[in-house]
Design a protein around this nucleic acid. Structure first.
Lengths: 203, 203
DNA sequence: AAATTTGTTAACCAAATGGTTAAACTATAT
DNA sequence: ATATAGTTTAACCATTTGGTTAACAAATTT
C-alpha cells in the first residue's frame, strides 16, 4: 500500500512540524529538529514540502483551520446571544487544553507576517462577522442588551478568552500564583467570563 | 569627552537592538542588522554587550521597565477603583502608540522563555497585586461593586486592554475592517472598555 | 521479471550567523 | 610629546542552517 505509507510520512512530518513551529515560531524552528521529531531524514522534508517556508505555510493553514471553527461559534452559530457567549467561553478552555500553543502561534505569526491574512481570507470557512452584527443589533432593538457595537463586543469576548492563555507567563507573575493556582483561576473563568460579559451588556 | 561618546554608542546600540528585537524576536533578530541600524561595526555589539543573549536581556529588561509602570497604574495607584479603570484604559492606548511592539514583545518572549520571569521578579518595581486585592475587597464590602475575585478582575482589565493590540492582525481580519477603521475602533475603546468593565461590576 | 516510478538516505554544499582577533585610531593622563 | 587606556574596524573563523545530489531501496506498472 504505497498510498498509505506515503500519507503516513507526509502526515508524520506535518505533526512534527506543527509541534516545533508552534513552540518555536518560524524563525526559531529548525528543519533538522522537525526531521528528528518525525524520525526521518532531513531531505524528506524537502521532498514533501519543498522548503521551510512552504512547510510553515502548511502548518499555519492547518492551525488556522482548527481555530476558525472556534471563532465561528461566536460569529455564525444560531443559538441565543447569551447562550452562545456562555458556551463559547466554556468550550474555548477545553480547546486550548487540547492545543496549547495554537492560538498564540496564530496570533504571533500573523503579527510577524500581516500579509498572511490575505491567504487566509480567500479560504472557505473564513469567519465573517456579518451574522453576528445582525444578532447584536436585533438584541439591542428587542431591548435585551444595552447599545454596543458588535465589533466592540466581539473584540471583548475574544480578548477575555484568548489573552489569559497567551499572556499566561506574564499574568501568572503579576497575579503571583503558581501554575496549579493559575489553572484553577482559568477553570473558574469558564463561567466567570461569560457572566462578566453578560452582566455588562444585559438590561 | 570620552564618557559621553561611549554612552552614546552604547545607547545607540540599545536603541537599535530594541527596534530589531521587538519586531523580530530573539530568534529572528540578526546581530548584523542591529549593527547596521546602529551604524557601527558588528564587533562593537560584542564589545559592549558580550553576546546576543546578553544584549537581548538588556533590551528585555528595558522593555519590561517601561511596561511595569503601566501595570502599576492598575495595581498600585491610590485613586478610586472606577477612576483608575477609566484612566488606565485611556492611558494604555497612548502608551502602545508610543511603543507599538513592546507589549507583544514582552508577552511573546516570556512565552518562549518562562523562566525569564524569575529575573524580572527580583527587580525592584515589579508590580504586585496585593494592594489591588485590598481595594477590590473594600469596594465589595462597601457595596460599591458585586463580588468578584481581584485576580479575575485584573485579568479582565489587562486582557481587554492588551489583546486588541496583540491580536490586531487577527482581529482586523475577523472584524473585516482596514487599518484606518480599526484605529477608530481602538480609539473608541479608550472609553468603551472602561464602561464595559464598570457596567459589569457596579451595583 | 524487467522497467519505471516513488520513497528514503548519507554525504555534501553554499550562505548565513554569532563571535573573535589584531591592528588602527582617538582621547586622556603622564 | 609620549605612553596609556579606551574605542572602532576589517578580516577572519567555526558552526549552524536550509537546501541539493546521487545513489539506493521499495513499490508499481508493463
Amino acid at each position: 500500500m504505497n498510498k498509505i505509507k506515503t500519507e503516513n510520512t507526509e502526515t508524520e512530518i506535518l505533526i512534527a512540524a506543527k509541534e516545533i513551529f508552534q513552540q518555536k515560531g518560524m524563525a526559531g524552528a529548525r528543519m533538522q529538529e522537525i526531521a528528528d521529531k518525525a524520525k526521518i531524514n532531513k531531505a524528506l522534508l524537502h521532498y514533501y514540502y519543498r522548503s521551510k517556508q512552504l512547510l510553515f505555510e502548511a502548518v499555519f493553514k492547518s492551525a488556522f483551520s482548527l481555530l476558525a471553527p472556534q471563532l465561528n461559534k461566536v460569529l455564525n452559530d444560531d443559538s441565543d446571544l447569551f447562550e452562545k457567549i456562555r458556551k463559547f467561553t466554556e468550550n474555548y478552555v477545553s480547546f486550548v487544553i487540547k492545543h496549547p500553543y495554537l492560538p498564540n502561534f496564530v496570533v504571533q505569526e500573523l503579527n510577524k507576517n500581516p500579509e498572511f491574512v490575505q491567504k487566509l481570507r480567500s479560504e472557505k470557512n473564513f469567519p465573517s462577522i456579518e451574522k453576528f452584527k445582525l444578532q447584536v443589533s436585533d438584541a439591542i432593538n428587542q431591548g435585551i442588551i444595552k447599545p454596543i457595537e458588535a465589533e466592540q463586543l466581539f473584540i471583548n469576548i475574544i480578548s477575555l478568552n484568548i489573552f489569559p492563555f497567551i499572556g499566561e507567563p506574564l499574568l501568572m507573575a503579576l497575579v503571583n500564583v503558581d501554575k496549579e493556582s493559575y489553572n484553577k483561576i482559568l477553570e473558574n473563568r469558564k463561567t466567570e467570563v461569560a457572566e462578566f460579559i453578560i452582566n455588562s451588556i444585559k438590561i
